[in-house]
């Protein structure tokens, strides 16, 4: 908008206005998009470190299988994260030379304190997830839902949604809800999607709710 151009005052005003209006509109859009896509997710999730840096890889090598630590109980329920009592079996004393193990033995084993593990895939209380139905009946592998966590050297940062208190892994890492793997997102629709594929039917409410 050159000032040398001879245009009537009113025209000038209108043009100026039209241009800036659009410009401001676009700025507004840009700000919102930036806030929504970049800043908001950062604010929404509280990052938490696990109490101990646990290496699945090391343990997997030592015990050989997932179900050595994550096993089914006699009544068919799944034990989930190991309790201190299980860990003590091997870790009564420091075995290796890692700092993590030392912390574990000194702060937890010695004080008989359960480790407050943060569970990435913990479903809300209203969900009844049957490991038996998936692992025993449908013979699915752990990896098909949990991915490669079993071979990881270190534990990822746990992200807790500040509003809901749930793990970010449930709603999905990607804020847009895009997923590539089964374990990228664990919302109800994801359960339904797989159920529909495998059984031809999303299932009834009570199949997974309690």
């Amino acid at each position: 908008m050159s000032e040398t151009q001879k245009v009537s005052a009113s025209d000038n005003k209108r043009k100026n206005t039209g241009g800036t209006t659009i410009l401001f509109f676009l700025i507004g859009v840009a700000i919102s998009l930036a806030v929504g896509w970049v800043i908001f997710p950062k604010l929404l999730y509280l990052k938490k470190s696990q109490p101990i840096d646990f290496s699945h890889a090391v343990h997997n090598e030592a015990v050989g299988d997932c179900d050595s630590c994550h096993f089914f109980r006699e009544d068919g329920t799944f034990s989930g994260s190991p309790t201190l009592a299980q860990c003590i079996d091997c870790h009564e004393d420091v075995q290796g030379d890692t700092e993590a193990e030392q912390i574990f033995v000194e702060e937890y084993i010695a004080q008989n304190k359960e480790v407050p593990w943060l569970i990435y895939s913990k479903q809300p209380d209203c969900v009844f997830f049957s490991h038996a139905a998936h692992v025993k009946k449908a013979e699915m592998s752990c990896e098909s839902c949990h991915g490669e966590i079993g071979t990881s050297e270190t534990l990822p940062i746990y992200e807790e949604n500040r509003i809901t208190g749930y793990s970010r892994n449930i709603w999905g890492k990607n804020i847009a809800g895009i997923k590539k793997h089964t374990w990228d997102r664990m919302k109800m629709d994801d359960c339904g999607e797989c159920h529909e594929e495998e059984t031809g039917d999303k299932g009834s409410c009570f199949q997974c709710h309690k």
Binding site: T21, F24, G28, V29, W37, P124, T164, G165
Partner: peptide
């Protein structure tokens, strides 16, 4: 205009939708 843009932009960002979902999950 800025406000209108911001509003339009927000509708195309995850913010309102995620907040709406999360607030209902919060009630769980």
């Amino acid at each position: 205009s800025l406000g209108a843009g911001a509003t339009a932009g927000l509708a195309f960002s995850p913010l309102p939708w995620k907040l709406m979902d999360d607030s209902s999950i919060w009630t769980q």
